[in-house]
Nucleic acid binder design. Structure first.
Lengths: 331, 331
DNA sequence: GTGAAAGCGCTAACAT
DNA sequence: ATGTTAGCGCTTTCAC
């Protein structure tokens, strides 16, 4: 790969002049500019982003980090797409790190990201206390949180109103006449799980429906969790007549379990899930779901990050997006 | 962030010695080693991967590129997970580039990847003629192709036997008594689309079933394509009694369309899709599908890449994995 | 066993 | 308008 030096030599100038035409800084004679441009073309020169990044913190190296908990979860895929589209239009590349809900892996990735000298980071941390991420924020790395925030740390964040979304879902079930409504939660370390549980409890209490502890299950935010916990619910002496699932993977696991038991949805048991998916309407039956604007979340987050990179001092923004209840055949 | 210089000063040695203990190269006095180690700990030193990468091509910078066509397609997500797991255990980070089936975007990403000085690349190129990727291969960048290869270019590749997978799917439909079997293809520029079409045609011909051109539709490998093209099929004067869909997103689109027409599956029309998904059994009805070992593909590809990085000279390997027909209720 | 110094490709301050 | 040079953080010869 040709370097600036090669260009300079071929055009018979110094590398400083090459740098000038490359960055449109300073003034350079039209004739030499043309020569340099030609050399660049001839040698198919491509600037080294690595060298640029090493050179100085003051210049943007156009590299962002993205740290997400679970790439298997279509919600994060959509967030990622949103991020990526904005990054792409602004000529940023992305280092994508998926820690698979594994805090050890998350830690390693944060170290790598740091040592890759990224310009900024969009992260959904494993938990709100994440010391390492907090430290990076404090050291001045531009960070935007998505889906999950950081406790006692002033940082940009884009989330949805999880409590309200859950409330609407459970209220919907109640209005349909359901009374034994179960909740299958994801990891309790994740704030959104707790807010969704809060929404569930609030809805029950709003309608004076007693809370039955055995109808609340806590799992791992994954398919397997949904499967196993729903199994437990269905095996109860008095099983639920409706279930509210804490995220899309849990929903799929729960569906599997319900089908195994040969129960009819919604006649025997209704189900509403958090997170809508592109194939929700193709499920058996089509799924009533709380839709998060995942793609938007990604876009907004990336915009906030680029803003913060160019203006590090600006006050932090907490952006709360609305959810939407999509009613289909499963309720 | 502390640099090697800081460590050296604090330990009262030169950076060369620091480098030695960092890389376990050369011999260094136990006492000084201890001092240096302590300084590293005290200053929470983290090596700069950027500087290391700039320094020399001869030393690995532990960064891989991944170039995929469509992150919305769960198949690629699973491939990505496979890649990532292997990369992680070998202490490599990943720059993930999703070009959304957009060749212009793909081109830009290849440039970025190159200028990021990655150690190697796993790619599913938009088409087999990709000049830029070919050039990178020829210039010595370790590359492994997945899912899609490069014409007339010797390169490691991991694929499945698409023709055979399609053949099995269509044969299955035929044995069930279907005769008007449609095929909704993805982008024809993608080799796998063509191989799958070949498998479809071979199956028909093996069973002496005439090919009906209007039953073969070519689309864009996306949800919308599946939806629109299936719509066209269903509006035919003589609609198909079965449809074989070219990938998972097309399948979902086709399902949507069939449901819209209120047709019963498989009574009115059977459907079998290429690509199995975690929620295939939760679809309405559960989906008969050709399963690709996507996660394995990713793992194998990454292993091949790491091999090639450490041994650039070794002969190219073409790895062909088997598909599996999972029969469920949609046929 | 340890250090000095060159150099990877680039930017930016300072000279000319 | 253009050139010279220091330096970003690291590895690696070559001395000592």
């Amino acid at each position: 790969m040709a370097s600036m030096n090669d260009i300079a030599r071929r055009a018979g100038v110094s590398i400083a002049t090459v740098s000038r035409v490359l960055n449109n800084s300073g003034s350079v004679n039209e004739a030499t500019r043309a020569r340099i441009l030609k050399a660049i073309k001839d040698l198919k020169y491509q600037p080294s982003r690595v060298a640029k990044r090493l050179r100085s913190k003051s210049v943007s190296s156009n590299l962002l980090g993205v740290l997400i908990p679970d790439i298997q979860n279509p919600f994060y895929v959509d967030v990622l797409r949103g991020i990526e589209d904005i990054a792409y239009t602004n000529n940023y590349a992305i280092i994508m790190c998926n820690y698979s809900q594994d805090e050890k892996k998350e830690k390693l990735y944060l170290e790598i990201l740091q040592s890759e000298a990224i310009d900024g980071l969009i992260a959904a941390p494993a938990n709100e206390q994440d010391v390492q991420l907090k430290k990076m924020v404090r050291e001045g790395l531009p960070v935007v949180c998505v889906d999950r925030g950081l406790q006692d740390e002033d940082v940009d964040i884009v989330v949805v109103d999880n409590r309200e979304g859950a409330f609407k879902a459970v209220e919907h079930l109640i209005k349909l006449g359901r009374r034994r409504i179960a909740y299958i939660s994801g990891l309790q370390t994740i704030p959104s799980s707790r807010y969704r549980e809060k929404g569930y409890l609030d809805a029950l209490s709003s309608y004076q429906i007693p809370v039955v502890p055995e109808l609340i299950k806590h799992g791992d935010s994954k398919y397997e969790g949904g499967l196993v916990l729903c199994e437990e619910l269905l095996n109860l002496p008095e099983p639920p007549d409706a279930v509210f699932t804490g995220n899309n993977l849990i929903t799929l696991g729960a569906l599997e379990s319900i089908h195994k038991h040969q129960l009819r949805i919604p006649d025997d048991i209704a189900i509403v899930g958090f997170d809508d998916m592109i194939w929700s309407s193709s499920l058996n039956p089509s799924l009533t779901a709380v839709r998060q604007p995942a793609y938007d979340i990604g876009q907004r987050a990336c915009e906030l990050l680029l803003q913060r990179i160019s203006e590090p001092g600006r006050a932090c923004i907490k952006m709360i997006l609305k959810t939407e209840l999509i009613v289909r055949r499963s309720t």
